[in-house]
Design a protein around this nucleic acid. Structure first.
Lengths: 331, 331
DNA sequence: CACATCTGCGAAAACGTTTACCTAAGTGCA
DNA sequence: TGCACTTAGGTAAACGTTTTCGCAGATGTG
C-alpha cells in the first residue's frame, strides 16, 4: 500500500497541513523537533509524494512536452538531449512526441499534452497549415518554438538559428572556391528553415552577380531518401552543375552516396555541402563540409527559456543562435 | 478559465456524475436527449478533461516511462520511435529519460517516474550495480526490460534479442571467410548484451577449433570514442589480427575511420564487422557488414507487452527477437 | 499591567474527477 | 391494487495534496 501524507501525520501526531509544510519546506515557523520527527518518519516509511494530487492543487506538473518531427532524424536526438539535460537539472520531465511533420498528428498531440496539463510545450512546428495555426492559437499552454519559426499569437519565446546567414556563408564559401553552378536540394519550403536558407542561397549568388537558375533548385523532404531521389532528379534534368548545397546532412550524405554509385567523385567532380553537422557527417567518406547548427544548445536554451517564462511569467524573448561553417573534405 | 465537468453539469441541469458517465460512455441507462445535450455543451465549450484529477481516482495515468542510456546513440531513437508509435496508437504518452549508463541517474529517474505515477516503465538497465537492483526491487511499478537482461524480481516482461546467436553468426561468417585472428572490441561487460555476444564470439571460435586469445579482447564503452581508443590500444598491443568484431556500429564506424587514418585498408588489410545495423552503417565507406537488431520492433513490442500486462495483469513473458547478418563491404 | 507580536500548529476548503450506492417515478403483471 | 422491476439520474465520498486563515499560548514592550 502506498503511504500518504495522512499516514505520516497520524504517526507523528500532527496534522497533514504540518506534514505538507515540512516536506515542502514552506512554513519556517515549525519547531525543530516536529520537523525532524516528521522527516524521520517520512524517510522510514519511504514516502513518495503523489504528484497527481499535488498538481491538482498547485496547477503545476513539472512536465514539459517536446514535440518534434522525427526523433529518428539525427539532428533531433541531440536537441532532445539538450532539452532533457536542462529539464532534468531543473526538476522537470519531458514527454516527447513525433509528428512526422503531419499536422493532424501534431494537433492530436498538442491536445493530449494539454490534457496532461504539461506546464509548457516546446515545438518544432510541422507543415504550416491553416488549421494547425488555428489550433495553436487556441492552445492555452505556454509555447516555445524551436528551430522553425511561425506566426502565432501566444508564443512565449523562440529559439531559432540564423538560417539565412548560415546558408549565405555556405554558398559564399562555394563561390569563393570557384564553384559557379550550385544546385540546391532543399527541404520542404513550407518550413521557415528551408525558406530562410533559400534566401541565403539566393542572396549569396546575387552578391556574386550570378543569375539564379531555378532549374537548379529541387524541393523535397528533410529525409535521407530525398538525398537519393533529389540527386537522381538533378542528374536526369541535364542542367549543368558543379556543386550541390543540401537542405540537411541527411540529404547530403545520401547525395554523396548516390553520386559515388554513378562514379561521380566528390569533391573532384562535384562538391557537396550539408547543413546541421550531425555527428555522422564527419564519419563518412569524404567527411562532409557542412553548416554547424548547435542542436544540443538549442534544446537546452529552449527549456531554459521556457522555465524562465514559467517562473517569471514574462514572455516574448527570441534567442537567435549562430551557425558556423565546418570545413572538411567534401568541397 | 478552464471549464470543468461542473460547468457542463450546471449548464445542462444534471449532476456531475451524469456528465462524467456520459463523457466516459460508462452508464448506458441515460436518455438520449440528456446524452446529446451534454455532449453538445461539452463540444461547444471545448471541454478538456483534467487528466490529473482523473488519474487521482482511477490510479491510471496512461503514461509510460522510457529510460534509456542515451538517445544520442543512433540505436535508441529507432527503439524510442517504435515505442512511441505503439504507445500513441494505444492512447499512451511517453516520458523519456537518459541515464548515460549512470546508476545514480537511473535510480533518480525511476523515483521521479514513480512519483509521476506512470503506469509502467520500459527500461534498458544501466551499469548493473548492487544498489541499483535493490532499488529496482523496491519499485512497485510494472517493469519491462528491453535490450539488456537482468535478474530482478518484479519484472513483468522482457524484450530481448538473441545476442549469443547474433555474435556467433557474425564471427562464424568471418571464420568462413578465412579470417583467423579476430579481435573483439566490446562494450562494457557489465551489460548482459556484451557478455552474451562475447559468449557467441568464443563459441564460434571454439567450434572452429581456434584457441581464444584474450589479448585480442578489448573492453570499453558502447560509444564512438571507444572505437578510436580501442583501435589504438589494439594497434599498440602488437598482437596480430586480421579482423575486428565490434560491440556496436558506433564503435565499428570509428574503428574503420581510425584504421583508414593509419592507412590500413578495410576490408583488404583488416575486416571490420559491427553490431546493430544503425541506419548510417550503410552510408559509410565501405558500407558496414553488421548484425541487424530490430530496434524499432523492440520498442514496439516492449510497449505492446507492457500494455498487455497492464490490461490483463498477468506477467512473465519474455520475447526474444532474432538478429540477422547484413552483408555489405567491410568484410 | 495591558497590549501587541510572535510561535507553532490545526481545520477545512479546494483542486476536478470517478463511482458505489441510492431514489423516485414509471411500467408490467397477477 | 399491490408488488417487483426498470429507467434515469442524483448524492456524496474518495483520491492525496496544498494553502488560507485562525487560534492559543508565549514572549516582548512601554
Amino acid at each position: 500500500m502506498k503511504i500518504t501524507i495522512k499516514d505520516i501525520a497520524r504517526e507523528a501526531n500532527v496534522s497533514t497541513a504540518t506534514v505538507s509544510k515540512i516536506l515542502n519546506n514552506k512554513d519556517q515557523r515549525i519547531s525543530k523537533e516536529t520537523r525532524e520527527r516528521v522527516l524521520l518518519i517520512a524517510k522510514e516509511k519511504n514516502y513518495i509524494p503523489n504528484l497527481m494530487a499535488r498538481s491538482l492543487v498547485t496547477r503545476k506538473t513539472n512536465t514539459i512536452g517536446l514535440v518534434l518531427p522525427d526523433i529518428t532524424n539525427p539532428f533531433f536526438p541531440e536537441l532532445a538531449r539538450g532539452a532533457e539535460d536542462k529539464a532534468n537539472k531543473e526538476g522537470y520531465m519531458i514527454m516527447y512526441c513525433n509528428t512526422d511533420d503531419d499536422s493532424e498528428k501534431e494537433s492530436s498531440y498538442l491536445e493530449m499534452l494539454a490534457q496532461k496539463m504539461v506546464d509548457g510545450i516546446i515545438l518544432t512546428q510541422s507543415a504550416n497549415k491553416e488549421g494547425n495555426i488555428e489550433s495553436l492559437n487556441k492552445l492555452k499552454i505556454p509555447l516555445v518554438l524551436i528551430d522553425r519559426d511561425i506566426n502565432v499569437k501566444n508564443i512565449k519565446g523562440k529559439v531559432l538559428v540564423d538560417n539565412f546567414s548560415g546558408a549565405y556563408e555556405a554558398v559564399d564559401y562555394l563561390l569563393k572556391k570557384g564553384y559557379k553552378k550550385i544546385a540546391y536540394i532543399t527541404g520542404p519550403l513550407s518550413t521557415t528553415t528551408a525558406i530562410e536558407r533559400l534566401g541565403g542561397y539566393t542572396k549569396a549568388l546575387e552578391d556574386s552577380h550570378i543569375l539564379i537558375n531555378f532549374d537548379l533548385i529541387f524541393e523535397g523532404e528533410y529525409k535521407a531518401q530525398w538525398g537519393i531521389d533529389g540527386t537522381n532528379e538533378l542528374l536526369k534534368s541535364k542542367v549543368e552543375f558543379d556543386a550541390i548545397f543540401c537542405g540537411n546532412d541527411l540529404i547530403a550524405i545520401n547525395v554523396i552516396r548516390t553520386l559515388k554509385e554513378k562514379n561521380i567523385k566528390v569533391p573532384e567532380d562535384i562538391a557537396v555541402l550539408g547543413y546541421d553537422n550531425i555527428f555522422l557527417s564527419e564519419m563518412i567518406e569524404p567527411p562532409l563540409t557542412t553548416v554547424n547548427q548547435p542542436a544540443y544548445q538549442m534544446g537546452y536554451e529552449a527549456v531554459k527559456l521556457l522555465i524562465d517564462v514559467l517562473d517569471n511569467n514574462k514572455d516574448g524573448k527570441t534567442i537567435k543562435l549562430k551557425t558556423n561553417l565546418v570545413i572538411r573534405k567534401s568541397v
